[in-house]
Nucleic acid binder design. Structure first.
Length: 377
RNA sequence: GGAAGCGUUGAGCAAUUGGCUGGCUCGCCUGACUGUAAAUCAGGUCUCUUCGGAGCGUGUAGGUUCGAGUCCUACUGCUUCCA
């Protein structure tokens, strides 16, 4: 992986850059659609590539390990071949499932023992086997196995947790460095900063992660329920410590406003289920603002879903039609809404890049945040 | 014309031997969702309300009873069967 910074914004810490992987280039800042099981829910790869203009998508180690399983993925020649997405991919390690499936796992120094949410079977995830699994899945960017702490989280727990996450990181790095990619292209390991909402813990963790000297770094444990101000404060502290010449990835964030604020703090990469999940629930992000298409007020609104962001399906179909599809529980609703929301997120991030290039990102960001204030905690 | 059965909220159904009444599902309305256990979940949906509550309700009109959606009578509407 290579990272090159082209421009730095004059009015903020935002930067314009480019990541190069063996599966192609990624312009930064970037938003990465989430495709947990090797598919972005309700969206075909054709639209993902041509209309939404996604440059990289995510997969999830825990979910792919359970289904289809490593045998199938290895026999397929890795996830890229399996799902035919030829652009870059990133896999999360399962660290988020340590948080979201906390009631069916037990953490020990060795790792996390999960009970499958599918059939109840038991599985042990360790830093070592999570590296092996991500070698087998074969994403270009892979994540260290961490503990994503919940919110709220008491200080003692958060402190002990970062210590363990750091020890796990050392084991991830060791295993990663002593193994080879399986499919002939490079993989990059990203360590993850934790520390909940405690400034001193975030500093300690950020320094540890910076010292690990990997090619790109991530910030986790945010957007788990804390106030947005805390998210920004932690992000700022960590960004100032993580090396400026390497990509910074803020995991799981967020709303349009969250993303713009964090770009201004020096974040280069984002992912979030919000555009896809909310789309399936009738909540739309558009260039005109945020709307709940299920609301009665759209029943006879025959204006385009969104004519302004270069999405053929959103320019062609009306709000009234999409509302009808959502209300009628038609599968096409999830598809059109997901294309709209992801298309919007990628459009927003392209706009952000243009404004960084011009140098007025800070001013533009503030005006956009007023428009997208709702949909933000 | 005769007989039987049935009328509960927008719809379809519940409600023990007559028992302390507003249930369930759907629909409708609103909200939530941040490294996806999520095409999911939550709340509201007779009237009024100062949000604490307060009224009123089982086709219509009577009756029996301490008490009626439930029993009786008449009327009315629907359904089925027989002519």
């Amino acid at each position: 992986m290579k990272f090159e910074i082209k421009t730095t914004d004059k009015s903020s810490k935002a930067r314009l850059g480019k990541i190069t992987t063996d599966h192609g280039e990624i312009q930064t800042p970037i938003f990465m659609p989430v495709g947990t099981l090797g598919a972005v829910k309700a969206v075909h790869f054709n639209e993902l590539k041509e209309d939404i203009k996604a440059e990289i998508i995510l997969g999830n180690t825990y979910h792919l390990y359970l289904r289809p399983g490593l045998e199938v993925l290895e026999a397929a020649g890795g996830l890229h071949k399996f799902n035919s997405w030829e652009k870059p991919m990133l896999t999360d390690s399962g660290g988020y499932q340590v948080y979201s499936l906390s009631h069916r796992r037990k953490i020990t120094e060795q790792g996390a023992e999960f009970q499958s949410h599918i059939d109840g079977s038991k599985h042990i995830f360790t830093p070592e086997n999570v590296m092996d699994t991500q070698r087998t899945i074969g994403a270009d960017l892979i994540m260290a196995f961490d503990e994503c702490t919940p919110y709220p989280c008491d200080y003692k727990y958060a402190k002990d947790s970062i210590a363990m996450t750091h020890r796990w990181l050392d084991r991830c790095i060791k295993r990663f460095d002593e193994t080879e990619p399986k499919y002939g292209y490079q993989q990059t390991l990203l360590p993850i900063v934790q520390g909940s909402v405690y400034k001193d813990l975030r500093k300690i963790s950020a320094e540890y992660i910076a010292n690990a000297g990997r090619e790109a770094n991530a910030i986790g444990g945010l957007s788990v329920g804390e106030p947005a101000e805390d998210m920004y404060e932690m992000t700022e502290i960590v960004c100032d410590i993580l090396p400026a010449d390497k990509p910074r990835y803020l995991m799981g964030v967020g709303t349009p406003a969250n993303i713009l604020e964090c770009i201004a703090l020096g974040i280069d990469m984002f992912d979030c289920v919000m555009p896809t999940r909310n789309a399936r629930h009738g909540y739309l992000f558009t260039s005109e603002g945020i709307i709940n298409i299920k609301n009665q007020k759209w029943k006879s609104d025959f204006s385009a879903i969104d004519p302004n962001i270069d999405l053929p399906t959103s320019a062609r179909h009306t709000k009234a039609y999409l509302r009808h599809l959502v209300v009628s529980n038609e599968l096409l609703a999830g598809q059109l809404a997901s294309i709209q929301n992801l298309g919007f997120y990628l459009w927003l991030i392209r706009q952000a890049r243009e404004h960084i290039a011009v140098g007025d990102f800070g001013v533009w960001k503030d005006s956009m945040i007023k428009k997208y204030r709702n949909g933000c905690r």
